[in-house]
Design a protein around this nucleic acid. Structure first.
Length: 372
DNA sequence: TAGGCCATCTGGTCCT
DNA sequence: AGGACCAGATGGCCTA
């Protein structure tokens, strides 16, 4: 009977809401759907196992749940009156099989004996609650996936972990709000540093790789670094967002990135430079520092909630780059999901990209703002 | 093998 | 009463 929860086709639509967690567009193939269904069925097995697990604290909890059950059962005796007076608080838990014929003498709602019907009802209720919880978590994951797609880095094979996604999103929001607040193009160094604040090293690498790739795609020769002292000015025609200039090409041209301005001690954005990010050019090592340091002290900074991190960023070699693969690249393990761990210098460029490339219209307004 | 990340179960609490 | 939300526990998977 328990299997009805998942085998009953009328109940499957709810279960199959899972299938939307990957992509709202519904592009998921039927195989994935089947897998999800299978997972649901497996989950049922777990459920039944869990129900059978019932001993120890579990059985106690079940009896408590059952005690709330209103339905009367023919096997249940009705106890009349609350009985005892003030000292009615007698522990029913003494001994091993206290439930058998031993009535609780407590104040408050009577605890009813577990009958077969009650056990079954509580099981069903628990299973329904579990199914709801699963659905809820899948919805949450779906939302998280959507969030992954709108943060400045997206990879199908190397998904950002949940926590990293949230951190990056927070940094991204922070960076955008800073842009709006200041009303001018951000300093590039500050921008990337802000984005990478608090991120783990692997995620920092991934983000850097994404930004680098996107800029590589939309930066052209006329997009010169116009370092104007206070902040770099980067113009990428076709770049929906004009502050992703981290191409090797660009770095090669930009004296700022290879000059003193790239040193840890200098920044147009002091708060952002509390964690310093260095740059590694695949053409030549410039500004190789790559080590964040220092504690997050600025309560207004996007990482005021983080207790202090050490990270580094190393840019991977772009595909087709003349640089030796893996030059200056450090790829950690944690923080990246998907079972594919890119070897040094071998980030999956084919499916890794900044989201701007996929949704070129999303940032039109920002872009207009930047170019006004 | 340890550590990170994740899915799931579970019981408690709060809200409608 | 039932559902939503939350946090702890647990076990699986993957990688270094």
């Amino acid at each position: 009977m328990l299997t009805r929860l998942f085998s009953d086709p009328s109940l499957l639509p709810e279960v199959h809401k899972y299938s939307g967690w990957v992509d709202d567009s519904g592009s998921e193939d039927s195989k994935t759907r089947e897998e999800e269904h299978e997972r649901c069925r497996l989950g049922l097995d777990d459920l039944e196992d869990a129900d059978l697990r019932g001993g120890g604290s579990g059985s106690r909890a079940q009896s408590e749940i059952a005690a709330e059950d209103e339905d009367e059962d023919e096997e249940e005796e009705e106890e009349d009156g609350d009985g005892d007076g003030a000292d009615g608080a007698v522990e029913e838990a003494e001994g091993g099989d206290e439930a058998e014929g031993h009535r609780p003498r407590k104040r408050g709602p009577k605890k009813r004996e577990m009958t077969k019907a009650r056990v079954e009802r509580s099981k069903v209720r628990r299973q329904k609650a579990n199914a709801r919880e699963r659905t809820r978590m899948h919805d949450l994951n779906s939302a998280l996936d959507n969030l992954r797609k709108v943060v400045p880095c997206y990879s199908k094979t190397q998904k950002l972990s949940k926590i990293e996604t949230l951190r990056l999103a927070k940094n991204y929001i922070w960076a955008l709000s800073e842009i709006l607040r200041n009303g001018k193009r951000p300093d590039v160094v500050s921008y990337v540093q802000t984005l990478c604040k608090g991120l783990s090293q692997p995620t920092t690498n991934l983000v850097a790789g994404c930004l680098q790739l996107s800029s590589r795609n939309f930066l052209t020769a006329e997009h010169q670094c116009q370092d104007s002292g206070g902040g770099g000015r980067f113009h990428g025609a076709g770049a929906p967002f004009s502050v992703h200039p981290y191409s090797y090409h660009h770095q090669h041209q930009c004296p700022r990135l290879s000059g003193p301005a790239c040193q840890p001690s200098s920044s147009a954005h002091p708060a952002a430079l509390r964690n310093h990010v260095g740059y590694c050019s695949t053409y030549e090592p410039v500004c190789v520092n790559g080590t964040f340091s220092g504690k997050q002290q600025d309560c207004g900074s996007p990482d005021a909630d983080k207790p202090g991190y050490h990270y580094s960023v190393h840019y991977p070699a772009a595909p087709g780059s003349r640089a030796p693969p893996g030059h200056g690249l450090v790829l950690g393990s944690s923080g990246l999901r998907g079972g594919v761990h890119a070897p040094e210098g071998a980030l999956p460029y084919h499916d890794m990209h900044a989201h701007h490339e996929r949704t070129p219209g999303v940032y039109d307004e920002l872009n207009a703002f930047f170019h006004n």
